[in-house]
């Protein structure tokens, strides 16, 4: 497995290989049939004239893949969806990004897309919460809303005709993220779901799984109608009293390490799996730091293999 450098001892290596092998054997056969590497033939019915999409090419009358990934078919269109590529936004996605530039009436955000995303001043709620025209004064005060390097959560609004990406943040749940850590995982590990914001009440932690593979783990903040940004600034300056409580911080670190382990093993990140992994580390008395050690990786892989096997058995039993 790529990117996985672990100081495994002999038994751990055998156990990890066994677990990964089992995971592979559990995967449905259709999934492995649809995955292609470069120069693989893509079987198509030549009679219905198909459209060759991204990542495909014509070679001696056969359709071959020019990328590694999964073959997707939409009506006549056949294309290859690449794994480990940059994030490909879709309208309505919830993303986490980092402000890199403030331009007239807009912020530019880095979101792991091939271009920078644009968040217009007019497509976000002002701190005072009143709907009105944006004035020149608002434009001058843009830095009081987001500064450079701020981590921001927003929604994909749509593409302009020139291909650039526009975002919007028209709700209280969107906006600046503070007091926590940002993790980057490959974008394909986060699947589009109904819910991307998760308030884990038992831990007092907010977890945001951005569709672009940016994951935010931070202290829970109350959504207020009027955010008192000025007061926040003041609080940051007299530091020591305002540090995240140690209990919450432990939970943040534990969840963040769970995300790190799962993404390194290449498991799709779902909120249930993250919580399960964190809880498993708690119940087996693994220190937060030791979650990144070899033993916990092996345990996590084994647990996931068991879980998927159970799931498959239940499915077959129900049938």
């Amino acid at each position: 497995m790529r990117d996985l450098h672990l100081p495994l001892n002999q038994t751990q290596r055998v156990r990890l290989e066994a677990a990964l092998h089992e995971l592979q054997s559990l995967a449905p056969a259709a999934a492995s049939a649809a995955s292609v590497t470069v120069a693989d033939n893509i079987p198509v019915n030549q009679e219905d004239n198909i459209l060759k999409g991204h990542g495909t090419s014509d070679h001696d009358g056969e359709v071959v893949a020019t990328l590694c990934g999964v073959v997707e078919r939409v009506n006549k269109l056949v294309y290859v969806r690449t794994l480990r590529a940059r994030y490909k936004p879709e309208v309505g996605d919830i993303i986490v990004g980092r402000v890199i530039e403030i331009a007239p009436k807009r912020w530019r955000l880095e979101i792991n897309f091939s271009q920078d995303a644009v968040l217009m001043l007019s497509s976000m709620n002002l701190p005072d919460g009143i709907q009105r025209r944006r004035t020149a004064v608002d434009e001058l005060n843009m830095r009081s809303i987001f500064e450079e390097n701020d981590v921001v959560c927003a929604e994909v609004r749509g593409f302009q005709h020139d291909g650039s990406l526009h975002l919007q943040a028209r709700s209280q749940k969107y906006g600046k993220l503070q007091r926590g850590q940002l993790l980057t995982v490959p974008a394909y590990l986060v699947k589009r779901r109904k819910q991307h914001f998760h308030h884990l009440e038992q831990y007092d932690v907010d977890l945001i799984l951005g569709c672009n593979g940016f994951v935010w783990v931070g202290q829970h903040v109350l959504v207020r109608e009027n955010t008192e940004s000025k007061e926040d600034k003041q609080k940051l300056s007299d530091e020591v009293d305002t540090f995240t409580p140690i209990e919450t911080r432990k939970h943040i670190c534990r969840l963040a390490n769970a995300v790190r382990v799962l993404s390194a093993l290449g498991f799709t990140l779902t909120i249930e799996l993250i919580i399960q992994t964190a809880e498993a580390s708690l119940s087996s008395n693994v220190e937060i730091n030791d979650m990144l050690g070899a033993e916990f990786y092996v345990q996590t892989a084994e647990r996931e293999a068991r879980r998927r096997a159970d799931l498959l058995r239940k499915k077959n039993g129900a049938r």
């Binding site: 600046k176 503070q178 926590g180 940051l236």
Partner: peptide, 10 residues
């Protein structure tokens, strides 16, 4: 990558 004020504080 730069860090935001909130992350630095964290």
């Amino acid at each position: 990558v730069g860090l935001s004020e909130g992350e630095k504080h964290f």
